[in-house]
Structures are given as C-alpha cells and as structure tokens.
Design a protein around this nucleic acid. Structure first.
Lengths: 113, 113
DNA sequence: TTGACATACCTTGCAACTCTATGTATAATG
DNA sequence: CATTATACATAGAGTTGCAAGGTATGTCAA
C-alpha cells in the first residue's frame, strides 16, 4: 500500500488558474506552486496532457504569443464552456471536501483546528 | 477526458471510521454514507482490497465475531500504528484541502461561501 | 565560449487507485 | 419460494499522475 503522492484535482486547479488570466503551461506550474504555498508542485508530465484534453473538450483555447525574450509561448484561454465547467467542479469540490471533513469530525481524538 | 467519479481518500476515511469503534466492512460502507450525508457510497470492490492492504501494513487487525443474527462478521480494529497513520494523513488532508481552497480563492468569480 | 541552469514544450510507459462486474453464501421478508 | 438485505471476496478495465526521457532556446558566470 505505498501511497501515491498526487494532486488529485488537476483539472479544477488548472481551470481555476485560467479564470484569472491567460497563462502558458510553465507559468501555470509556477503560479500553482506559489498560490498553494509550495504544496502543489505539478509535473509537466501531468499538466501538458491535461491541457491537451481541456483543449479537445473546448474548455480552453490555445494561441501562440512571443515572449519579450523572443521565445514562443503557448497561452491558454478559458472559454465560456470552460468557465461553466469550473463552476461545476468547484461546487463538487466543496461537497467533497465538506464530506471528508464531516467524517473526520465524527472520529474522536483528531484535533482538527 | 471523461470524469471518473471516485472517492479519493479511501484510506484516510477508513482509518477515521475505525478510530471511533471496531467495524466490519459492510458497516463501514453504511456508516460512511451516513456520516457524509450520502456523498460517499463506497463500493465493495474498493473497500475490501483497501482493508486487506491496511491489515498487511499493520494498521488494522481483523477478528471474527458472531453477529446476533448468527452470521459471522469480520471486524477490524485500529492498531496504534494505524492511529499514527491516521494522524499523519489527517494532517496531510488539511494541508491539501487548504491549498486547493487557497488556489480557488485566488481565482475571481467563484463565489465560494 | 562554454558549461550550467532556467525556461518552455512534449510523449511514452508504468504504477496506483477505484469502479464494474461477478461470484458465493446466509438471513429476513412477503 | 422468491426477492431483498446482509456480508465477504476477486478479476479486469479505465482513469490519472508520475518518472523518465527528449527537444530547444535564453541567460549568466567562469
């Protein structure tokens, strides 16, 4: 029963990042780490396939843009459809985390702040 | 990108249930559904392999006991080692869920209660 | 200038986790 | 006597995340 250390709500987190502004992949990884206080260090092998899936589903749209450095970056923009999905998934997260907390509260000796 | 509807912290939830009292498998499924207000309807195909893993790791101990009905039930008891694991995993959950919430908060237009 | 490091994208293949489906068996209920 | 609830179990499939690898450019210090 080795534990897999994993970020389990990748899609929700990515959609959430893009709700604020268009971002490119590498930036998302950095931002996610920053906003989560280094709790989430998402791997590229995780992120890029998810981004491609989101694009295929019409949740995001990609476009190329040159960085000040001259390099090309692939930015992702949240579509209306993606915004709706974000809302749904955020709701689901609230339900889910609330249920976990309810179960934990009902178990003694677990000093939950 | 079809979504899998899944309970992601099975081990934490099971350990948490057993912190209150010894339980048998079927009872855990019922209790979990009750305490989570039907959010978690854990399947047998999920629970039993997890229980066997927990036993192999020394987190729980199993014993047979006859039910009032005359049927045999397999009860699971949380060991000290299992209690420590529960504490650790509950901490990890707090960190994880806090980080998700932090990311969600930093995204606009998501009316989080 | 060259070597290291950060930036930036991508894919393959594996391991882990949960579910579906199925099987077995007993007790209760109508 | 047939159906439902109880009670345990496993095999197989699907999804997800990661490790590991690859490609390429920009920056900076030695």
């Amino acid at each position: 029963m080795k534990k897999k250390q994993s970020i389990e709500h990748t899609q929700l987190l990515v959609l959430s990042l893009l709700a604020g502004e268009d971002m490119y992949g590498y930036q998302m990884i950095m931002e996610l780490a920053r906003r989560s206080d280094r709790t989430f260090e998402m791997k590229e092998g995780t992120l890029y396939p998810v981004l491609h899936g989101l694009e295929k589903d019409g949740y995001v749209e990609a476009y190329q843009q040159e960085a000040p450095t001259g390099r090309m970056r692939k930015y992702y923009h949240l579509t209306r459809r993606g915004g709706a999905a974000l809302k749904t998934e955020a709701e689901a997260w609230k339900t889910y985390s609330g249920a976990v907390n309810a179960v934990l509260r009902s178990s003694p000796g677990l000093n939950l702040a």
